[in-house]
Simulated scan of single mutants.
Amino acid sequence: MTTFTAAVAGASGYAGGEVLRLLSNHPNIQIGAVTAASSAGSRLGEHQPHLVGLADRIIEPTDASTLGGHDIVFLGLPHGESGKVAAALGDDVVVIDCGADHRLESAEDWVAFYGTEHAGTWPYGLPELVVDGARQRDQLEGVRRIAVPGCNVTAVTLGLQPAVEAGIIETTDLVAVLANGYSGAGKAAKPHLLASEALGSAVPYAVGGSHRHVPEIGQNLRKAGADEVTISFTPTLVPMARGILATSTARLRPGVDAARVREVYEAAYGQEPFVRLLPEGQWPTTAATLGSNTAHVQVTVDAAVGRLVAVSAIDNLVKGTAGGAVQSMNIALGLPETTGLPTDGVAP
C-alpha cells in the first residue's frame, strides 16, 4: 500500500482539527508536522482534545522549513494567509488550501469581497461540480494545488446545479436562505459568538449581498451552464455547533413540472458517492449529516408560485471543508475517491 506524508497548518483551528481527524483514519496517510501561529509550542491536545492519538504532538510554527518535505500540505489558515505560505512550497508538494485565497477566478471579485491582492486561482476542489457537462473530478487528477470551496457554496451549489445544468430554471431569480452552525465562524473569541449571545437565538449575518461566498456561488453555477446568475443569499447563525441547511429556490421555466424536476436530480446524483437524493417526502436535516462527508438533498416544486425548492444539508466541517479536501486529495493522488471518508452520520 502506498503511503503519503501530510502536514497540517492551522492545526489548532476547526478546519485543521477536522482534517487531522479524517487523516487519522486514512489508510494511505501518515501525519507529519502539525503547525499553527500563536499556539506553536503547545500540545495539540490542549486545542483538539478529541484527537486522542495526536494529543501529545507539539505544534510547530507555520513556515516553509516545517511544512516542506511532506507529500501533502493542508492549509487551514485565515483568509489572506495561504497564498504566501503556498508560494514558499515547491511544485513537488500537493498543497490543499482550505481557506478562500485560491477559489475565485476573478481577481476583481476577490478585491471587491476580500479587499486584498488576489493570490491566484487553483483547481477547484468540488469533485461533483458540473463543468460543461462533465464533473470537476476529471480536472483534479494529478494536480498539485487544490482550492477547497466555501462551505455555504458547497451546500447551495449541490442544491441548484442539477436544475441549472438541465436548463429548467431561471438563473437570474435565485434565492438561498441558510441555517448555519457556529463552527463556520471559526474559533476566534468575538462577543456575538459567546454562548450567552448565541444560545436560544438565531441571527442573520452578511445580509444584502455582502457575504464573501456570493461570487463563488455565481462562478460555480456559470460553470454548470448559467449564462447569468443573480442570487439573493442570506445566511443565519443558529444555535448548533455544526451543520448547514440551505433552502434554495428558483423560478421554473415554462412547461417544467415536478416529475421532470425529480428526473433531473435523480440523473445528476444517482451515481455520486457523497450526494444522497432523499426519497420523495423526506427532508434533509443537519443532524443526519453530522460527522459525514455526505450531502443530503431534496427537491420539490411549489406549483402555486412556479418555483423549484431545493433543500440541502451538509456538515460544514466535513463535506463543507475537510472532507471535501480529503476527497479531492484522493483524486489528485490516484486513490479511490471515497478512501478514508465516512458516508454515515452520527445520531442521535
Rank of each mutant, 00 (worst) to 15 (best):
L140Q: 03
T66D: 00
T321I: 00
T35A: 15
Q327M: 12
A88R: 13
Q327L: 13
R135E: 05
T286D: 03
A179P: 00
L75E: 10
E197D: 13
T2I: 13
P235D: 06
C151K: 06
Q271T: 15
V93S: 04
A332V: 09
V229I: 14
L51H: 06
A226S: 11
N330T: 08
V131N: 01
G270I: 12
D91L: 05
L317R: 01
T171L: 09
A107S: 15
A86K: 04
G345D: 08
T172C: 03
G255N: 13
A189T: 13
L333A: 07
P162N: 08
C98I: 13
M329E: 07
R262S: 14
V130N: 06
L333P: 00
E197F: 09
G208M: 12
R137H: 11
T338M: 02
T338L: 02
E141P: 00
G306C: 07
D56Q: 14
L317N: 06
A325Q: 07
S183Q: 11
R242D: 15
L23G: 04
S201D: 12
A188I: 15
G41S: 11
P162M: 04
L252V: 12
G218M: 09
Q282N: 05
E266D: 12
R260N: 02
A36T: 15
G150C: 11
D101R: 04
M329K: 02
A202Y: 01
S24A: 15
M240K: 15
E128H: 01
A15T: 14
A195F: 08
G120W: 10
G80K: 09
F4V: 10
S24Q: 13
L77T: 09
Q282Y: 01
K187F: 05
L140D: 02
M240N: 07
T234M: 14
A322P: 01
L237W: 10
V301L: 11
A310L: 05
A206Y: 08
A267T: 14
L174I: 12
A176P: 02
T286Q: 11
I168Y: 03
I231L: 15
P215N: 08
G281Q: 06
C151W: 14
G115S: 09
